[in-house]
């Protein structure tokens, strides 16, 4: 038996979120499916390389190649779909394995738990986009479509970093829905619908939907991208912020409802 009092309340409070994030990564270490989703970041670079090579485009520029390889379907559909799956997995495992009850009586803050999941999604998203960037860069070099120009490569990686950070915030509604569900069917279905809606809303009204708002902000300065009109960055961020706040409030609320 453990003989002494071993609680340090003050240290526990200060470390709640970083500790939860660290724990999330410990859990992810053993989740091979999560890491098996990463190579899907290479789908579009591979398709772009084949397309550019096959079409033998004489006017191919690095930016045009990167646009197709990393900034088109990768951020419109592939990344949202992968992040939706990740959100579902992160929330489902807590519910399925009955660990939430155990966490509440530690006690762990519901807000900290929700944001620890979001942090994991952000980190994973950044890793995913860096994989896409590295894949695009290598695909371009290996197929001889692009040269290793500093500016374009810098732009590629910086833009991928921006995508990796912003898109998870636009995915917060899916995380909140996943938090509210005991199963994974609905969150997965919602992920698919959500990703396609984001893509469709890009052509309708980008400010209504957070994912289309995020994508619009991210792609507006990419060479070769033609938008219907100028993108109001402020409005787009406002849309993401409103959806994100509502999702966070809802997510934390439904987590608290877990055992009721």
């Amino acid at each position: 038996m453990i003989p002494s009092k071993i609680i340090s309340e003050r240290s526990r409070e200060g470390r709640a979120l970083p500790e939860l994030v660290r724990i999330e990564f410990v859990k992810l270490r053993h989740r091979k499916y999560v890491w098996l989703m990463l190579p899907s970041a290479l789908i579009m670079p591979a398709i772009a390389a084949c397309f550019f090579k096959a079409s033998g485009m004489p006017d191919a520029t690095p930016m045009r190649f990167y646009k197709m390889a990393a900034f088109s379907y990768t951020i419109w559909l592939v990344l949202p779909a992968v992040l939706g799956m990740l959100c579902t997995m992160l929330m489902y495992e807590e519910r399925c394995d009955d660990t939430l009850k155990q966490l509440w009586i530690v006690p762990v803050s519901k807000t900290a738990l929700f944001f620890s999941k979001l942090t994991v999604v952000i980190v994973y998203s950044v890793c995913f986009m860096f994989t896409a960037a590295a894949g695009s860069f290598l695909a371009g070099i290996l197929t001889g479509i692009t040269a290793s120009g500093y500016d374009s490569v810098r732009f590629l990686f910086l833009k991928c970093l921006q995508c990796g950070i912003l898109i998870p915030f636009a995915m917060m509604p899916v995380l909140a829905v996943a938090a509210s569900q005991k199963g994974y069917v609905l969150p997965v279905c919602i992920t698919v619908v959500y990703a396609f809606t984001g893509f469709i809303m890009l052509m309708v009204n980008v400010y209504v939907f957070p994912l289309s708002s995020a994508i619009a902000v991210l792609i507006k300065d990419i060479e070769g991208v033609v938008m219907d009109g100028p993108v109001d960055t402020g409005m787009a961020f406002l849309s993401i912020a409103i959806w994100g706040t509502v999702s966070a409030v809802f997510g934390v609320y439904v987590l608290g409802r877990e055992c009721r």
Binding site: I6, I7, I23, V108
Partner: peptide
């Protein structure tokens, strides 16, 4: 995990 969450110092 639970030891860390509880701030168990031992």
């Amino acid at each position: 995990i639970f030891a860390r969450l509880r701030g168990t110092s031992r």
